[in-house]
Structures are given as structure tokens and as C-alpha cells.
């Protein structure tokens, strides 16, 4: 097996790996790099459990080949908290019970963060449709929307305070 050498950034750190041409980014993350926060729920882009960002864009990592991310920035659930300090979305998911079994949770969080990065003040409908690519079978719908709303509110008010101080 020949192997393709890939240089990428994952959660801000430079990472190099060798993979085969037929390996998905999801399998590289899980099987080669030990980053198992992204889950496989379908392998066909239907469930969103494997969500990551590629250059800030929400992506199903099961639909991208590992070899394709050479030179790109990857964001995964493992990079969302700052050390022990959880991201506001992570805190609000816990507080609002927006998770049950937890298997879809990393994907939802990555998708919610990508949504808020692009649209910091989404309407409820925008959140519902923004997260429509993620399935929760338990099912935490509604609570997930409330958690994202609460996180957006907290992040926006924190931003406003920062702006005032500046």
C-alpha cells in the first residue's frame, strides 16, 4: 500500500498523516488520529453525526476523503472547549438537557457552532433548518433549539459587553 502524505491543521494544530486513497476523513480522524468525537451514523451524509468543519464550512467527514484535506483547516468537537472551559454551546446543551444518549451530540455542536459563526443571531426557524442535517433519535429536538438560542444570546451579550469595554 502506497499511502498519501497529508499535511493539515486540526483544531489549530498542524497534523501530518499518511492515508490510503479510499479512506474517508472520518476514518482517518477515528482510526488513525484517535479523534473519536466525530461518529459514524450512516456513512452516506444523512445523519450529521460525523460533522466537522473544513475551512470553517460544515462538512460530513464521511463524505470527504482524507487525502482531500491536504492544506485545509479542520475543526472537530475535540477543539471546541478551551481546555477545561466548555464553549457556551456545550454548557447550554448540558443545562437544557439537549443531549440524551450523546452519540449525535458532537455533530450537533459542531453544526450549531458553524451556524453561529456565520449567523450569530439566528431566528428559531433558521436554527431548526440550520440543524436539519443532524438527526437525533432520542430525541432532543426543541431542547436542542432552546440550547442554541440560549448560547447565541449569551455569546452576543458577552460580545456587546466586550465592545462597550473596548
Amino acid at each position: 500500500m502506497s499511502g498519501i502524505h497529508v499535511t493539515t491543521k486540526i483544531n489549530g494544530d498542524e497534523v501530518q498523516f499518511v492515508c490510503e486513497a479510499d479512506e474517508s476523513l472520518l476514518d482517518v480522524l477515528r482510526n488513525r488520529l484517535g479523534l473519536t468525537g466525530a461518529k459514524e451514523g450512516c456513512g452516506t451524509g444523512d445523519c450529521g453525526a460525523c460533522s466537522v468543519t473544513v475551512d470553517g464550512r460544515l462538512t460530513c467527514s464521511c463524505l470527504v476523503l482524507g487525502a482531500e484535506v491536504d492544506g485545509h483547516d479542520i475543526g472537530t468537537i475535540e477543539g471546541m472547549a478551551m481546555g477545561d472551559e466548555l464553549h457556551p454551546l456545550q454548557k447550554k446543551f448540558i443545562e437544557h438537557a439537549a443531549l440524551q444518549c450523546g452519540i449525535c451530540t458532537p455533530g450537533f455542536l459542531v453544526a450549531a457552532k458553524a451556524l453561529l459563526d456565520h449567523n450569530p443571531e439566528p431566528t428559531e426557524t433558521e436554527i431548526r433548518f440550520g440543524l436539519a442535517g443532524n438527526l437525533c433519535r432520542c430525541t432532543g429536538y426543541d431542547k436542542i433549539v432552546r440550547a442554541v438560542q440560549a448560547a447565541a444570546e449569551e455569546m452576543n451579550s458577552a460580545k456587546k459587553i466586550q465592545q462597550k469595554v473596548a
Binding site: R30, I77, E78, L86, Q90, I94, A97, G102, I103
Partner: peptide, 18 residues
């Protein structure tokens, strides 16, 4: 809040194939 919540929101909770 659930006591396993932090592990689930950070990707640290390990399921079968993890």
C-alpha cells in the same frame, strides 16, 4: 443536569467502536 454531560459534549464519552 446529567453527570455524564461534560463527557458527551466534548467527545470524550467512548461508545463501542470508539
Amino acid at each position: 443536569a446529567r453527570i455524564d454531560g461534560a463527557r458527551k459534549v466534548t467527545g470524550a464519552a467512548s461508545y463501542g467502536s470508539d
